[in-house]
Amino acid sequence: MTRRVLVAYGTTNGSTAQLANAVAEVLREAGLAVETRPAREVTSLESCDAVVVGGALYAGRWHRDARRLVHRRRGDLAARPVWFFSSGPLDASASERDIPPVRGVRRAMIRVDARGHATFGGRLEQGAKGRMAKMIIDSGKGGDYRDFAAVRRWATGVADELTRG
Score class of each variant (00 low, 15 high):
17 A>M: 09
137 I>S: 08
98 D>A: 09
3 R>Y: 07
67 R>P: 08
43 T>H: 13
22 A>L: 03
10 G>S: 06
128 A>M: 06
24 A>R: 11
140 G>F: 01
25 E>Y: 10
105 V>G: 01
139 S>K: 14
117 H>K: 03
116 G>H: 00
108 A>K: 08
44 S>H: 10
64 R>E: 12
103 R>L: 12
104 G>C: 10
106 R>P: 02
59 A>W: 14
140 G>I: 05
105 V>E: 01
142 G>D: 00
67 R>N: 13
126 Q>K: 11
18 Q>Y: 09
148 F>K: 07
35 E>M: 07
111 R>G: 08
85 F>I: 10
30 A>P: 12
143 G>C: 06
17 A>V: 07
83 W>V: 09
8 A>H: 02
65 D>P: 00
99 I>F: 09
108 A>I: 08
68 R>C: 12
18 Q>I: 09
34 V>F: 03
149 A>Y: 05
103 R>W: 10
15 S>W: 00
54 G>D: 04
84 F>T: 05
16 T>Q: 11
79 A>T: 11
59 A>N: 07
126 Q>F: 08
157 G>M: 02
5 V>D: 08
135 M>Q: 13
151 V>M: 08
161 E>F: 06
57 L>S: 06
92 A>H: 12
50 A>T: 05
25 E>G: 15
26 V>K: 05
118 A>F: 00
60 G>K: 12
35 E>R: 06
46 E>N: 14
147 D>L: 11
132 M>A: 04
71 H>W: 10
73 R>H: 15
108 A>Y: 02
78 A>W: 08
71 H>M: 07
124 L>I: 01
32 L>M: 04
144 D>F: 02
39 A>P: 02
78 A>N: 03
141 K>Q: 15
123 R>M: 13
113 D>E: 13
99 I>T: 01
152 R>D: 07
27 L>H: 07
116 G>Q: 02
153 R>S: 09
103 R>A: 15
53 V>P: 10
155 A>M: 08
143 G>N: 12
158 V>Q: 06
30 A>T: 11
59 A>P: 04
120 F>Q: 00
9 Y>K: 04
100 P>K: 13
165 G>Q: 12
139 S>A: 12
155 A>K: 08
82 V>W: 06
51 V>A: 13
160 D>Q: 12
128 A>P: 00
25 E>L: 14
149 A>E: 14
113 D>I: 09
45 L>S: 03
27 L>K: 02
66 A>K: 05
160 D>S: 14
4 R>G: 10
27 L>Y: 01
165 G>S: 15
149 A>Q: 07
89 P>I: 11
15 S>A: 15
9 Y>L: 02
19 L>P: 01
122 G>L: 02
54 G>C: 13
4 R>N: 14
85 F>N: 03
90 L>C: 14
131 R>Q: 03
155 A>L: 09
51 V>R: 00
141 K>H: 15
89 P>R: 05
36 T>Y: 01
38 P>A: 14
134 K>D: 07
99 I>G: 01
137 I>E: 00
77 L>I: 14
143 G>T: 04
162 L>I: 04
49 D>P: 11
49 D>M: 10
114 A>Q: 03
165 G>A: 10
83 W>G: 04
76 D>H: 04
94 A>Q: 04
159 A>H: 06
77 L>P: 02
153 R>C: 01
37 R>N: 04
119 T>C: 05
106 R>V: 00
67 R>A: 08
